[in-house]
Design a protein around this nucleic acid. Sequence first.
DNA 1: TAGAGCATGTAATAGGTTACATGATTAG
DNA 2: CTAATCATGTAACCTATTACATGCTCTA
Lengths: 188, 188
Amino acid sequence: MARENKSKYAILGLLARGPMSGYDIKKSIEIGLGNFWSESYGQIYPVMNALADEGLTTRDIQKNDGKPDRHVYTITDKGREVLHKWLTESTEPLKLRVEVLLKLFFGKNVSLEESLKQVESFRQEHIEKLKHYLAIEEYLKQDRADNPEQPYWLMTVSCGIWVSRAFVDWCDETIEKLKVMVETPNNQ
Amino acid sequence: MARENKSKYAILGLLARGPMSGYDIKKSIEIGLGNFWSESYGQIYPVMNALADEGLTTRDIQKNDGKPDRHVYTITDKGREVLHKWLTESTEPLKLRVEVLLKLFFGKNVSLEESLKQVESFRQEHIEKLKHYLAIEEYLKQDRADNPEQPYWLMTVSCGIWVSRAFVDWCDETIEKLKVMVETPNNQ
DNA sequence: TAGAGCATGTAATAGGTTACATGATTAG
DNA sequence: CTAATCATGTAACCTATTACATGCTCTA
């Protein structure tokens, strides 16, 4: 019933690799999870405070000459337990909100050319994502082969590749359909 | 800069087909857009009120013997204009939050069997979605062939099919990888 | 007679982003 | 000299769900 705060687990999962500050967490999410996850500072800092209050992490303030102090958090045994529990629990069904599909669904209200534009721009978006994921995959295979977490990272990147490919293929199919509709104007 | 309320456009898009109540909107979203969109009453009713206040719709209260009155909203010309503008505007990049990938990314913290369980359950989820979308596709082809909006509906359903297939294929690939890891325990 | 469907809506709460505030250092 | 990076955090705001409140009718 209760909606769970997933940000909490994203942060605990990253802290399980080693102590980090809120700033580090933000960077790590952008680099490692950007594909399928995001968090803003407005979420990260309050959640990290709550984590320390609950005893799932400990806080350590490090002096940083010139720059602001670093608030470094370390996961506790209790924190690892909570993380482990979540990792083995059942996962809620995926919920997507795909704006371009909403626009296409209401396509009757605009010209075929406008719908085409939307699908073509969506296609371009995923062509670029695909390129990006393939580069990350190469990098992980070449330069991270010795990291024990590398197989898991490759699996998540691979999901991005499958999904972006599916989107591109769907776009190609849809662009074809729309072009046929342009050529055969039997719509009143 | 400003984050836009997309609920507004989902509702306007449905009202463009004909007058509806909040209750009707909820049903229509579940049936027609459930694949890639959702709205709760807590969003729908306030947004529909705001729409009327802005002059994008008009409100009409219909007596409904025995049952509660129906508040039926009709889109105005101004409403159609606003809808049209949004439909032709550029669309924000897609942002996904895939919980199962977060769990897999942190796979090092649990056994391979636990990761396998997560991926297998995700696979099952999309096998069922796929079956569902294929049934809807059949229905649209058989019983809605004469509807001028049918081609657009088919395109959005097709996207669900492509994406669910991609997820299932990724699961198969990932399950294989995890099984190989179980058999070759070279992880410290 | 219990539950589902019809039909409205609000209040409490949670989830999440953006803008703002501060201020030093470093790279171009 | 300008912009980015480092680094913290809060406040305002928007987005969204869930639970609650009401009450009739029809079906199993």
